[in-house]
Computed example of a mutant assay.
Amino acid sequence: MQVEILPFKSSYLKGALNVWNEVVLEGKAFPQTEVLNEKTGYDFFMAQSFSGVAVEKTTNEVVGVYILHPNNVGRCSHICNASYAVKLELRGNRIGKMLVTDCIEKARELSFRILQFNAVVASNKRALALYESLGFIRLGIPPGGFLNKDNVYEDIIPHYLIL
């Protein structure tokens, strides 16, 4: 499989929505509870500082997506935040690493100084291992900071990386 990360554009909308909504419906990683439709999804991806898609080169299929945006406003707007989604059946193929490394470079290009993740769910072992391998620093463990789809509270582990 040959994958490249490209800027989001409308022709990738349906594929990006499928990947994003799959994670929302799983209810194990994203704080969102509502899926995006074509209107809300297009507006959502376009409202970010950058939205990237992982596209399989031979099929042009969207296999992953990420969003990058300021984590806060004003005096804290130099800190960015991101979210990543990889198509369920393709997880474990290093697509997530491609998304995160591309995001780090894009954040630098956009003059952000810190990339911060507010709520990495403790059971998301692949993400935790990836972030650690890329040099992210854990900030602590807010207990019960995430409500899973099955109504069980789970710890979150915020992280940051100085860009």
Rank of each mutant, 00 (worst) to 15 (best):
I104N: 03
L134S: 09
G64Q: 09
N18W: 06
L25Y: 01
V120S: 03
E154H: 05
A122S: 04
Y131P: 00
E22R: 10
A29P: 01
Q2W: 01
M98I: 07
R91P: 03
A129M: 09
K106S: 02
L36Y: 05
V63S: 06
K97I: 00
G74R: 12
N151A: 05
V121T: 12
N81Y: 07
C76K: 14
L130V: 04
S123V: 02
S77V: 13
S51H: 10
L36K: 15
A29G: 14
V86P: 02
A122E: 04
Y42A: 04
E22N: 09
N81S: 14
R113G: 01
R75T: 02
Y66R: 14
I114C: 01
E26M: 11
E26V: 03
G64A: 07
P143C: 07
L128H: 09
G52E: 09
A82C: 07
L130C: 08
N60I: 15
K14W: 02
T59A: 12
R75M: 08
L88R: 13
V86H: 05
E105H: 13
V3Q: 06
C76E: 06
N72I: 04
K14R: 08
Y42T: 02
T59W: 11
L99D: 00
A119V: 04
P7C: 15
S111P: 06
R138Y: 00
S49F: 01
H78I: 09
G74W: 10
E89S: 08
A127K: 08
I162S: 13
L17C: 07
V23C: 14
I5D: 07
E132V: 00
Y42C: 05
K87F: 05
N21L: 12
V121W: 14
T59V: 15
T40E: 08
A107Q: 04
I67E: 01
Q48L: 13
L68K: 08
A107K: 03
E105G: 11
